[in-house]
Simulated scan of single mutants.
Amino acid sequence: MTTARPSSRPSCPPRPSGPAGPTRPGRPVRGLAAALACGTLLVTAAACSNGDDGAAGGSDVAAAPVAGRTTAPAPLPLTNARARMALITAADLEDDWTQVKTAGNWHDRLLVGKVDVARFVTARTQAAACQQLLDGLYENDMLGKPSGGSALTGFQQDEARLFYQVAAYDKADLDKSLAWLKSLPTECDQFNAVGAQNATRSVQVVAASLPKVGDARQGITVTVKGSSGGSPVTLTLDVAVVRVGDDAITVVNGGTDGVDHDSTDDAVSHGVTRLKDVLAGRTPAPQPSLFD
């Protein structure tokens, strides 16, 4: 004799039996509600009847968002070789710039001078910041000594020069340098410097906008008025610094015929693209994209 196994299905209220009679008001609603409740229980029981399948289904759903996550690889350290790869070329600049190998030896004597401290309200702080600006421009050393790999190049067009450097720095020092550059249009908006044979140069510093690329950026335009060979001369320079992680791009562009701000923007925009490619392990494109 076979013993019937108890059913695991939830029991539902038995259907009413007996002769059909007049339906009482409200009863069909209660009957329908009971039927719906029973149907819900049956569906629930069916879903939970197989514990293994249910667990597998829950695992698949939970794993989907995790599988979709991607972790960006850490950027490569900037070595000298990678810094050279990240340098812009003449193709990254419009007009007729010619790449040269002598940029590290560029020094403009109009930038040599001792800041006239007497012209400042808070002499020591302001004068030191302005002296650092002149010395940095003359020595091609706006951000101090790199902490890692570095490379530089230069371009010439008529009387204009464009100095370009890629280098790794200590991030805290780099942030301090950017804050210093940001302060210069206020601290050094107008000042005088005394050069050889007591020749006085007037210097003006104003803020300059840059393309919104990189992690942080700062731009200024410096105008130095003095004399050369007994004739008045004006030197105008764009200075642009863009931070990408712990690395930075430095651009100094201009000359005695003025400055082409578009070339500064091109150097910054295309330079950041090239540097990001190198840090990601990619080879920069030989020509800049039209959509950069």
Rank of each mutant, 00 (worst) to 15 (best):
D292C: 03
G104S: 12
R243P: 07
T98P: 00
T3V: 13
L181I: 10
V213P: 02
Q218F: 00
Y138M: 01
L184W: 06
Q165G: 09
G230V: 08
L184Y: 04
C48V: 15
G21I: 05
R282I: 00
V213E: 03
L110Y: 01
D141G: 10
R27D: 07
T71M: 02
V194K: 09
T200I: 15
A240T: 06
D215A: 07
A160K: 12
T40F: 08
V43F: 08
Q131N: 11
V259I: 07
A207L: 01
P73M: 02
G51M: 04
M142S: 05
F191H: 09
A167I: 03
P286G: 04
V244M: 10
L152S: 14
V272R: 10
V222F: 04
M142N: 03
D135M: 06
V242K: 10
L133T: 09
L133Q: 11
G18C: 11
Q156K: 14
G148T: 05
C12V: 08
T2V: 12
G113W: 04
L110I: 02
K176F: 00
L275R: 08
A37F: 02
D277I: 03
G21E: 12
G31V: 09
R24A: 14
V222P: 08
L237S: 11
L93K: 07
Q99Y: 01
S8R: 13
A216V: 07
